[in-house]
Design a protein around this nucleic acid. Structure first.
Length: 273
DNA sequence: TCTTTATGGTGAG
DNA sequence: TCACCCTAAAGAT
């Protein structure tokens, strides 16, 4: 289940498994991609990259495989031709002498040449990647005229604003920054925006380094030791509607924004109304 | 065996 | 803002 950090973790595994190796075989489930199987067979993989939630596998013949996992796609790395037992649909496989990289369930897979990559309708609209840039780029976006009047709840999910933030990071970032979701950049001081930009980058990096845990690391470690499940210790507020805030005990509010669930603490995230 | 939900994204109005 | 697309798993019946 993929936001920027999860995609980057998958890309790291993929990179270790296939980069610099020759693809001995490439399989596409979609008929319109079949012609590329022979074009990519025997090619070396030059790089595995992420752009927000999208992933690119760059081959040395100038072709790239683009994939977006949406909500469902899942990468699995196995020994060569060692397929897992699963009911999921295999959509893409890249084999080398030692490993097989298998992409299940994803529906958004393309093969792009250099020109198509440069003008890609989704990639070309992405804002700065939250994991590939310092917080200055995020601050620039927050201060830009284009975004100043939009609520944080809408802004943080917009990949043209900053790429890689998804629905759990939205709630978590706003909680850590202490900002109410309905606020807009124009409602905030420069210092507050600077904090938000720093927090956005920091929370995304913590999630990447600690396998999706955005909660306080020491606190989550204790909860885990006490036998709490991953869902129970993972986040500050996301998925914790009506439970007590970990900081102040106030009941966490669950609401809807941009057609997605959002969670916040009305006490720790003031400034609305 | 349904219906709903999900850490995502698009396009119409 | 809403309907819709995508796929899999969980929940309801």
């Amino acid at each position: 289940m993929p936001e920027g950090p999860e995609i980057r973790i998958a890309a790291d595994h993929l990179d270790r498994a296939v980069r610099t190796s020759v693809a001995t075989e490439v399989f596409f489930a979609f008929p319109h991609l079949k012609p590329y199987e022979s074009q990519l067979r025997g090619c070396r993989i030059a790089a595995v990259e992420t752009r927000g939630k999208a992933l690119l596998i760059r081959f040395d013949n100038e072709l790239s495989i683009y994939s977006h996992n949406q909500l469902y796609g899942r990468w699995v790395i196995r020994k060569a031709y060692d397929y897992p037992a699963t009911n999921r649909q295999l959509r893409l496989a890249i084999h080398n002498a030692r490993r097989s990289a298998l992409l299940y369930s994803a529906s958004d897979i393309e093969v792009l040449d250099r020109g198509q990559l440069a003008s890609h309708p989704f990639l070309s609209t992405l804002g700065p990647d939250v994991l590939s840039n310092g917080s200055e780029r995020v601050l620039d976006q927050l201060r830009s005229k284009k975004h100043r009047r939009r609520r944080f709840s809408s802004l943080l999910l917009d990949q043209r604003f900053v790429a890689g933030i998804g629905n759990y990071l939205r709630s978590e970032i706003l909680f850590v920054a202490g900002l109410h979701p309905w606020l807009r950049p124009m409602d905030c001081s420069t210092d507050e925006l600077r904090v938000l930009a720093d927090v956005a980058v920091a929370v995304a990096w913590q999630s990447y380094r600690h396998d999706g845990v955005t909660n306080d690391l020491e606190g989550s470690r204790i909860l885990k030791a006490q036998g709490h499940t991953r869902n129970q210790y993972r986040h500050w507020v996301f998925g914790r509607g009506h439970q007590p805030c970990r900081r102040c005990g106030t009941s966490i509010v669950e609401d809807t924004a941009a057609s997605r669930r959002i969670f916040f603490c009305p006490e720790c995230q003031p400034g609305h109304g």
